[in-house]
Every structure is written in C-alpha cells, then in structure tokens.
Nucleic acid binder design. Sequence first.
DNA 1: TGACAACATTGGAACGTTCCAATTATTAAC
DNA 2: GTTAATAATTGGAACGTTCCAATGTTGTCA
Lengths: 351, 351
Amino acid sequence: MKNERVTVIDIAKAAGVSKSTVSLVLQGSPLVNDGTRAKVTAVMRELGYVYNRGAANLRQSSSKSKILGVVVNDLTNGFFAELAVGVDMVVQSAGFVQFLSNTSESLDRQSEVIASMREHGISGLILSPARATTAADLKPIVASGIPVVVVVRNVPGARVSSLVSDNQQGTFASVRHLASLGHRRIAFLGGFNDTAVFEDRLQGYRAAMAAHGMKPDDSLVVPSAPSRAGGVDAIGRALAIDVKPTAAVCFNDAVAFGVCDGLRAKGLEPGKDFAVVGFDDVIEAKTAVPALTTISVDPQAMGRRAAQLLLKQINAGKAEAESIISSVRLVVRSSCGAEGADPSVKVETGL
Amino acid sequence: MKNERVTVIDIAKAAGVSKSTVSLVLQGSPLVNDGTRAKVTAVMRELGYVYNRGAANLRQSSSKSKILGVVVNDLTNGFFAELAVGVDMVVQSAGFVQFLSNTSESLDRQSEVIASMREHGISGLILSPARATTAADLKPIVASGIPVVVVVRNVPGARVSSLVSDNQQGTFASVRHLASLGHRRIAFLGGFNDTAVFEDRLQGYRAAMAAHGMKPDDSLVVPSAPSRAGGVDAIGRALAIDVKPTAAVCFNDAVAFGVCDGLRAKGLEPGKDFAVVGFDDVIEAKTAVPALTTISVDPQAMGRRAAQLLLKQINAGKAEAESIISSVRLVVRSSCGAEGADPSVKVETGL
DNA sequence: TGACAACATTGGAACGTTCCAATTATTAAC
DNA sequence: GTTAATAATTGGAACGTTCCAATGTTGTCA
C-alpha cells in the first residue's frame, strides 16, 4: 500500500475498459457513456487513485500545467502577504496551485527561484520585482513565451504586463486634502530619489501643488531612506529651512512614523502642530497614536486582480502585454489634524 | 524560438554525444569526462536549455520531486507569514520549491489543496491545520507515505511529526513573572475552552499558580472568544467576582488588547492599576500603548525548523514521526507594570 | 599478442498520461 | 437487408527524462 502507485492502467483493468477510456473520464469528455463513467469513477475512488499531473504535462503543452509562480520581494511585509492571499484566492478557485517564493530583495535569489519554477513548468508568473530588477533580468522567461505579470513595481522596458498602484493619484489626493485644510507650505518627505516609485509620487505632489496655486519650491522636497529613521532625518532637515512647512506628504507610512517621532522630539505634536500624511496604509497606521492619515492601496484586491489578469493571458494563449494602474484612496485619520473632515476627496478603489 | 522546447536530445545532437551522456552531465555524475562535460554545458547554455523536472519525476521515485507543500490556515496573520518565510529560507537553500496555499480555516479548502498538491507530486507537506482538523482528514496523505510535519496546532491521533510551541512553559513563565512582582490574584482570561491549545496554556497557568503557593480558584479562569472583543468580555466578568484579580494572563495578544480596552472603560489603567500579559508577540505588541508584555514564539525560526525536520525525513526515506516542542520566551514590556524588571525569567528560544 | 581493468559512452525500455486514427457497436434511413 | 451515420471504445505512439545492461576505448601487464 505504500510503494505502488495506482495508475490509469490499474483502473482500466479493474473496470474492464481501456486506459484511453479512463483518460477520457478523467478529462470529463462527453464521449464516454454515463454507465462506464460511473463505473470508472467508482473504481478510482475504491483504489485511491491519484492523478499524476506530471505525466499529463509531459504530453500536453506546458501552458496547461495548472501551476503559477508567485515571487515577492518581501513576504515579511504585511503588504505582500496580503497580496499573496489575494492571488491565492483566485488561483485556488481556478483549480491552479502556486509556487510562492520570497527574494528578500536579492536579484540572485530572484533569478534562481524563477529558473527553478520554470523547470517545474509554471504556466505563468506573478512577480513583485526585487529592487533594481531590469528588463534584462526578465528576458529569459519573457522569451520563453510564459506570461508574466509584474506587480507593485514596474520594470521599465520589459515586455510584460504590469499592475501598479496609482502613485501620482495618491500623493495628489494627499496634497489636495491638506490644501483643503488650509495648508500652503507642504513638504514632500522621504524616499530614495532614484526609484520610479519616488518619481511617480513626487510628480503627483508637484501636480497638486501647482493645481492648488502653490509655486514649486524644491527646498520642500527632502529625500531620505524610506524608513522610520529616514523620516526622523527628513523632518529634521525640513524644519531647518527658512520658511518652515506646516504639513508633509510622506513617501510611505514608515517615513511618516519617523516624521511623527522627529516632530515630538522638537516639541511639536503631530496632527496638531503639524499635519502628516503617509502612503500604504500598513496595519499599524490604524492603531498608532495619532492614527495615520494615509493612502490605502488594498493589496489583497491587487493580488486578486493580478491573478485574474495572468489567468486571462494564459487562457488567451498569447501574452499581449497590458498595463493596469490600480486606483488608491485617501483614508483620513487624525495625523492630518482633520479626522473625517473631508470625505469628498476619497478616491474609490477600482476593481 | 517560442514554441519549440529544447530537449536533452537536441543538446545531445548539437554536442555530438548521446542523450544518456547529457543526462549524466545533468546529474553531475563523476563518470563523464571533463571535456565532454564542458562541451555539453556550453551547448546547454547556448541553446537556452531548461531542465524538465516533470519528465524526470515521471521516471524517478516521486520523493525526489524537489517540491514541498506548505498549507497554512491564515496567511493574513503576520505570524503565519513569518512562518512561511522561515520555511522558504531553508526550502530555497535545499534547492526545493514550495507550493503555498491558504485555507482560511476551511476544512474543505484544506482537503482540496492537499489533494491538488498530491497530484502535482509533492515530496513532503508542512501543514498548519485548519481548526477542527482530525486525524481522519490526514489519513489519505499519511497512508501514501508522504512525510507530513504539522506545525503550530497538533492533530491528536495522527501519525505525523509535529512542531508546536511550548504553551505550558509560556503561561508558566507569565505567572512566575507576575508572582515575582507580588501579584497573588492572577486570572486566566480568554480562549475557547475546547481546544488543545487552551488546555495546554491553562495547564501551564495552573502549574505555576500551584508552584508559587496560590491555591486553585476556577472563578479566576474566564474563557471567551480568542479575540479583542472576547477580551473585553472576559475582563468584565473577571472584575465582577468577589475577590478581584490584580493581574491577568491572557490566552493571546488579541485578548490582551481587549482586556486593556475593558480596563480603561472601567477607569483602570493597564500596566499601572492592573497587570496584563499576552501570548504570541504579534507585531502590534511592541507599538501598542502600553507596550504588551507577552510570550514570543519566533515563528520564522519555527518555519525553518519545520522545514529542516521535513527535509530530514524526506532524505531518510521513511517517515519516523517525531514531536518537537519549541521553547518560547517571555518579553517584558510595560503592560505588566514592570518594564525590564525581571530579566532572569527569560526562557531562551531553542535552535 | 592477448587478457584484464578502468574509464566513457550508448541504445533502448520505462515512467503515466494524452492524443490520434482506427475499430466496433448501435441506431436510422432507404 | 444493405448502407450511412452516430456513438462509444480502443491500441499505439508520443512527451522528456532516468536507469540498466551492454559496448567501445584506452592503457597496463605478462
């Protein structure tokens, strides 16, 4: 009972039909008589038959393996865990199963796991790329014709589909909200200024500043590491300029928390003496003191959407690259000093 | 370049050897001449050959598929995401790849994903079982001889290996710590009293109470839903008894947060007027106000350990069931009213 | 020169499935 | 009662690899 696999031939013998008929039953073909189908399925159950997809894949085109690859850059980050759960939902209900691997931002690991997944015959890949991933890194898998959907971070120049959140819209909404509260000196704090995400968020900030009649002032833009420590640093520098800001749009929530720390260290109360807005809506944003006003991106919905897009491409048989920008919404809490003050600026999430 | 797979035969032709030799190279056999090996690998690189593990698995014993299954009950919970990352680390460095699926506590989904993974030929399974999983649910996969390691929650009666955290030791340490701070009336709050985990934690609590000369008093044990709302409820009932407790060991961190809420609602300040200890050390425990004193279980280390155990069993070829209890440690913060007061009670994590 | 290792290489069968073309059984039509 | 059409079933080749037994190639020694 332990060593011997039950195969389609064993079933055939026991049911008194040929292996071809069993195969037909397995695929739910309408060609086979209802009586035989019933007998065959009964025998399968009785003998404890387990379908061997490996063997099936060998014969069929590899795009029918019913395996997806999911590669994320940091699974310890709640954002990506949620994303993975979203993917998992639609993957499961489509009868697929997913390889999931973590790269910890390492390009080498990323290449390795993608290669390994290819050997196992994935029919598509969802990738949240490690930092500094280039189109060249994706070349092999793209050339093989396996559909790829890149999420969260774009890979410029790669001929793959992408699904990123609307960074510009996000910071635009943040600035608009702060402006509606009367702020005129609004800083943009944190983030490495050599990344595409930074560029997008900064652009949304600048557009909104212009749209609300504030003249551009680059001394208000203070990059830093996209971390809590970076936030402390950035607010320190921002408060050292001539005409001090009264509010800040931060690169992400981690920076925003750091900004709050830095403000308190200078005797200022975030949400009261200075308005702070984050980006991401991490779990702590809700429970922190003060609760953080931020841009929410609903990673789980993004995961679902990415999986749907990928499955569509797999079924279509050809990878027509498609770019989707997923909308975001402003969540007003207390760190901006106006809890629930301006619900009109909410941008609804798409999907 | 898109449709045609490069096979071992193509390599053989191009390199002027037989497919058998190419296969030998693939397996790193010492039989093959260094010159030929070099030529073959060169040709493989040149033609962009991708090893087809599916075909290989067909020929080999299925325990060499280099695929592991990982099934968790709730990936949105940071605890399990960390666990998965731990598993991923050792899985990757062993050259394996993992299927990862989420069951959302659904037994049906759990059965489905395990069946699906079996069809894909996993050589082992790490399972964090959905609530109410029984030995019968695991029967098919256990009978097939595939090694299974159950983590976090035990499945009584199943002949599988298990790795759970030391629940008894955890609550024992909590009580000891509270006793060292002078508390005599210590309650045990929250948790469904029909689960094995509840039983374990309660037992540790009782043992410690006895060990520190406090007589058993079941009115101090107040079960509830293992959630924030359950905690509010439990502390309400606990404060209604004759001789009120002055401290509580909570079933988990969620309950502990609820207990803090409930205390404040009654005008009591947690950490000052009443000592609270949690269990799990979720991320928010550090940042909450007051920061939660709790029992930390290091899920990532648990994941690594589970994966190592499973790989060991796969390599051994036979599944000798093995039970490991992973030690935990008390993290003293401010909710117990004694930040850093008693470092001597720390229990070091194993591994 | 022949015998014997040691080393390299090889053809073919096997793994469990799908797919195709071919076959048989059943019914319908004239 | 023959033919045509439909329905149900079937054997065998194929998928890309591994493994086994067999073969070829050297070199060494008597």
